[in-house]
């Protein structure tokens, strides 16, 4: 009972503090502090409720147990991370995004292809492509190559649609200007088309970071060697070792956020001129 009371009191205290902070001066520090306090509160509530109601660790392990498991299984987690993220997700991400980028540039020259591919691309982007995973596992085998292939087809269409949209984003005056200079196709592309497309391209790249990780993990549910984040999650779930599952999920969350954050940082550097980045 004391756990529950502690949890509720802690929650009320933190909430009051946050409300007070939110009303006060909005410094950089406060803007980071408020969500951090909220996150900590959630963890404390989780820990207390699991202990207070004596919830079986088979259902929901407390954060402390997850942290302990995380630290004690670092080598396994690292091996899984390399298998799934570096080999599967990252390679597929690079191949898929570059292929989509080059296709978009090829398509951009032809209005006919653009009008044909865009609706199809938009359509495919909404499909449950992840379902292709069993087929690709059959074609490319159990190891990371099949995961990479799943990621390639998952990221291809969102990236294609965004890049094509970006290449059409240049405004009429800027295009006319290039004409008055008698610029060649490639000069127009490199000096106007690509820079103007960058905000869209990075939007695509950011969306694809999450898709890549999902593709690589879920593809492992259909068959994998005895390592990898998806493999570990599905087998440890089977053995009801939920603390290990949560540890893998933590790795996935950290990897996903870091991947996304990296792309967002590069975006900030490249598209510093765009109104959304200027503040």
């Amino acid at each position: 009972m004391s756990w529950i009371v502690t949890a509720v009191v802690f929650w009320l205290a933190m909430w009051t503090l946050n409300v007070r902070l939110a009303k006060g001066e909005q410094t950089r520090f406060v803007k980071i502090l408020v969500p951090t306090l909220f996150g900590v509160t959630l963890l404390v509530l989780w820990e207390s409720f699991v202990r207070g109601f004596s919830i079986s660790p088979i259902l929901l392990p407390p954060p402390s147990a997850i942290a302990a498991r995380f630290v004690s299984s670092l080598p396994t987690l690292w091996e899984d991370f390399v298998q799934t993220f570096i080999k599967g997700a990252l390679s597929g991400y690079v191949i898929g995004c570059s292929a989509a980028f080059l296709t978009a540039i090829a398509v951009d020259r032809s209005d006919f292809l653009k009008r044909g591919l865009l609706p199809i691309g938009n359509f495919v982007a909404a499909l449950p492509i992840i379902g292709m995973a069993p087929i690709l596992v059959m074609w490319f085998g159990f190891d990371w190559q099949s995961k990479s292939a799943v990621v390639v087809i998952m990221v291809f269409f969102p990236m294609l649609v965004n890049t094509v949209a970006g290449l059409s984003a240049k405004d009429a005056i800027q295009t006319d200007l290039m004409n008055t200079y008698g610029a060649s196709y490639w000069q127009s592309l490199f000096k106007l088309g690509l820079p103007a497309a960058m905000p869209f391209i990075f939007n695509g790249l950011k969306i694809c970071t999450t898709l890549a990780l999902i593709g690589a993990i879920v593809a492992e549910f259909f068959g994998s060697p005895i390592r990898g984040m998806g493999f570990r999650i599905s087998t440890e779930v089977g053995r009801l070792a939920l603390d290990m599952v949560w540890a893998e999920i933590t790795v996935a969350a950290l990897a996903g956020s870091a991947f996304y954050g990296t792309m967002a940082l590069i975006e900030k550097a490249v598209t510093f001129w765009h109104p959304s980045q200027r503040n």
Partner: peptide
Amino acid sequence: GYVFQAAGLYPW
């Protein structure tokens, strides 16, 4: 040289 209604400068 052509000058348009809007400046049409490249923001980057």
